[in-house]
């Protein structure tokens, strides 16, 4: 229980630090936001208009007060308005969350499915050629940016074979290539962890004993070894999922997938600060919660963690 409380306090502290970082992005931005907003609205920013808007936005208050006001708004779910068209940022982001979740979910399926299948396969025949090939491929994929994998996939599957759409979110099968692109990277990370753990687990005396007692090798591995390797895998899955959400930016841009990542990139190009801030904040929040959740699962799976 105390462990839980401490973990929660730490999470809140991290979130606060995150919010300070995100808020200070505004300070790094050259120029005056009020002037920027007026300009983009097609109005000539006269000193009077700028001053009025500054007062309306609370930009004339001292920084700590601005931060407190901003944080309060954010906690209430008000992420401000976009510079580009003055529409509420929260609604714009929420409209795009489903697409990103769909992509990240499909990618997670690819990552976990691929990693499990391949690692079990490799663990069952530790000296097989397949295992070695898989190991090399895993390493290779880990070093290559996802969009490069994506370009190669598009060239072969979509352009060469004309089998799948190269982008967009229209047909149901449009998710396959982006999910594969994003999932492969995640699978590589997971696989490296699982591979070492499983190899270790298979060598454990009780797994060998189980096998000697006549338990089929497949069950021996699946039941005993997997349980042994699980804690690490859970921790890794948390990290990988967070990476997937972050990696979606590039993949969404390449495949013209209408998710948050695409929104963020276009906002960055337009220097639309409130949207950029909301994106960073949301990614951070999702990651922190994911990692906390993974921690929680880890504790449930392996009581030893709590005592650390």
């Amino acid at each position: 229980m105390r462990w839980l409380l401490r973990r929660a306090a730490e999470t809140v502290l991290v979130l606060l630090a995150l919010s300070v970082l995100v808020f200070s992005l505004a300070a790094l931005t050259p120029g005056d936001p009020a002037e920027e907003i007026l300009r983009r609205g097609g109005l000539q920013p006269t000193p009077a208009a700028v001053a009025a808007l500054r007062a309306e936005l609370g930009l004339d208050r001292p920084l700590p007060a601005q931060y407190a006001g901003w944080l309060l708004d954010v906690v209430r779910g008000d992420l401000g308005r976009s510079y580009a068209d003055r529409s509420p940022v929260g609604a714009e982001i929420m409209a795009r969350v489903p697409a990103t979740l769909r992509l990240a979910g499909a990618a997670a399926l690819v990552a976990v499915g691929l990693a499990l299948t391949v690692s079990l396969w490799a663990a069952l025949r530790p000296r097989g050629a397949v295992g070695r090939v898989v190991a090399v491929v895993t390493v290779a994929v880990a070093g290559v940016p996802p969009y490069i994998v994506g370009i190669l996939l598009i060239s072969v599957v979509a352009v060469g074979l004309r089998a799948l759409p190269t982008g967009g979110d229209g047909a149901p099968e449009a998710v396959v290539l982006p999910a594969l692109t994003l999932g492969l990277a995640g699978a590589a990370t997971l696989l490296r962890l699982l591979r070492a753990d499983l190899a270790q687990a298979v060598g454990q005396p009780f797994v060998k004993l189980a096998a000697a007692k006549g338990l089929p090798a497949r069950r021996a591995v699946v039941v005993h070894a997997l349980r042994l390797a699980a804690p690490n895998a859970i921790a890794a899955t948390g990290v990988v999922l967070a990476d997937l959400a972050a990696g979606a930016v590039v993949v969404e841009t390449l495949f013209a997938w209408p998710g948050i990542g695409q929104l963020a990139v276009s906002a960055i190009r337009q220097r639309d600060l409130p949207v950029v801030q909301a994106y960073v904040l949301l990614t951070g929040l999702a990651t922190v919660l994911l990692l906390a959740l993974a921690d929680l699962c880890l504790t449930a799976a392996d009581p030893r963690v709590r005592r650390r």
Binding site: E10, L13, V14, L15, A17, L18, L21, V22, L25, L28, T29, P30, V239, A242, D243, A245, A246, G247, V249, V250, A264, V265, A267, I268, R271, L273, V276, Q277, Y279, V280, T283, G284, T287, V288, L291
Partner: peptide, 21 residues
């Protein structure tokens, strides 16, 4: 603590935020 905060912004996220401003 710095490491934990950095972990909260995975991948390209912080670079994107800075490149954006």
């Amino acid at each position: 603590f710095a490491a934990t905060v950095a972990l909260a912004l995975p991948g390209l996220t912080p670079a994107l935020a800075l490149a954006g401003v």
